[in-house]
């Protein structure tokens, strides 16, 4: 529940969702480990997030992360089993009107998407339901950012000019009509594909950066990241590439969907080894 420090109405939707998803997952408990070899183990460590002046490193426990963002094919299989997440049937509380807008119809993604390409135009609620169904969860912002610092050879490449330029080039390029498969990218040092340069990705606590810390600096992401605020309350003012992610996250609500926003799933180590 820690992720739901949002609006009170939101909290209610969230509760409602968790309950309903719980029902589904008991119905379909067979799905669990089929995607397991598609995950990579991320060793525990720590990193310093950029959105606060507090330079105390934040700890990240070891966990499993999907090597690829969830594909249209995987999402299609999901909505076949869960009609309530189909394009025409989804509740407007949980997904806005552009939900799966690049798909032709409920069960046919159509010519505009590649089945092996990442699914986009999905809401946070939908992404969570998908994860739950696979006995997974969405990665937290800390987990995601921790892994996203890596390039092909280093676990922390954020000081590498080329690393940053790749991200900035993606920002500058117009999105292609049809997104390619993440496998066209080179995997990073953990074996994870396309953390940068393909899509934005949902995080479990996407809207939570404003309440993680204890100091005044954390009291509101909006204030921190608008205009001059960003220059005085961040640990690394040159890390514009990462600023963009925090700005993007803070512009979202759980029901929003956009054409360049998808997700990948994570799982706790304890949970997977006990199965």
């Amino acid at each position: 529940m820690k992720s739901l420090h949002i609006h009170s109405a939101f909290l209610i939707y969230g509760l409602f969702m968790l309950l309903s998803v719980e029902l589904f997952s008991t119905e379909n408990s067979t799905q669990t480990d089929t995607l397991n070899d598609e995950m990579a183990k991320i060793p525990a460590g720590s990193y310093v997030p950029l959105y606060t002046t507090n330079k105390t490193p934040r700890k990240v426990a070891t966990f499993l992360l999907d090597k690829l963002p969830v594909t249209n094919r995987q999402y299609l299989a999901f909505v076949k089993q869960h009609p309530r997440w189909q394009k025409s049937k989804v509740s407007k509380l949980f997904a806005d009107k552009s939900y799966l807008k690049n798909w032709d119809s409920d069960l046919s993604p159509g010519k505009n998407v590649r089945l092996d390409g990442p699914v986009t135009n999905v809401s946070w609620f939908a992404a969570r339901a998908f994860a739950k169904f696979h006995n997974k969860r969405l990665p937290t912002v800390d987990e995601w950012e921790y892994v996203a610092r890596a390039n092909e050879s280093l676990t922390d490449a954020t000081k590498d000019e080329k690393y940053t330029q790749v991200i900035l080039n993606w920002y500058a390029a117009k999105a292609p009509k049809t997104l390619p498969s993440a496998t066209t990218f080179k995997p990073n040092v953990y074996g994870i594909y396309a953390m940068h340069g393909l899509i934005w990705e949902w995080n479990d606590d996407f809207n939570n950066a404003m309440v993680t810390g204890e100091s005044r600096g954390d009291s509101g992401l909006e204030r921190n990241l608008f205009c001059a605020g960003g220059a005085v309350s961040s640990t690394d003012v040159r890390n514009y590439a990462a600023f963009m992610r925090f700005a993007f996250r803070s512009s979202l609500k759980g029901s929003y969907t956009t054409s360049s926003l998808g997700f990948r799933c994570a799982r706790d180590i304890e949970k997977s080894t006990t199965q």
Binding site: D96, S98, E222, R223, F226, C227, F248, S250, S251, L252, Y256, T257, T258, S259, S260
Partner: peptide
């Protein structure tokens, strides 16, 4: 405050 910045913060498609 913000000259409208916070009030007009808008994600794609909104």
């Amino acid at each position: 405050p913000g000259g409208g910045a916070a009030a007009s913060f808008t994600t794609p498609g909104h």
